[in-house]
Write a protein that binds this DNA or RNA. Structure first.
Length: 107
DNA sequence: ACCGTGACGTGTC
DNA sequence: TGACACGCCACGG
């Protein structure tokens, strides 16, 4: 599958269940890289695409650090809210409750 | 092959 | 708590 690092990232993001979120660092560790920035960078290249649920990826604190990359500054928040994920001030409330760890869930 | 860039993470002050 | 510095590495030019 490893066509490229980006594709691997996208594939993991697609595996995130509705109503759940994961973090850049979690994806980075799952893919074996030590740099979460690579994941963030891959997500940046995703701007405008709808075939990957980019809104389900936040930073380690549950903050929607990539909200600015969406259509509007509130698009990411609204998408999460529509999936029953509470967002307050660009941050997910009860983040640990909705966190989905690929390494733990997928193995 | 070198350089700049970057939706992060963690440790320190 | 909050702000800052540094490490990490894939990709395009």
């Amino acid at each position: 599958m490893a066509g490229s690092f980006f594709e691997d990232v996208y594939e993991v993001v697609r595996l995130v269940p509705v109503g759940r979120v994961t973090s850049y660092g979690a994806i980075a560790r799952y893919l074996g890289t030590k740099n979460a920035r690579m994941v963030g960078w891959a997500m940046n290249a995703l701007a405008g695409r709808t075939d990957v649920p980019a809104h389900r990826v936040v930073n380690s604190q549950g903050v929607l650090s990539g909200a600015a990359a969406f259509e509007t500054g509130t698009t990411m928040t609204e998408r999460l809210m529509s999936e029953n994920i509470p967002v307050k001030n660009n941050k997910i409330a009860d983040f640990p409750k909705y966190f989905w760890d690929p390494e733990k869930e997928l193995g």
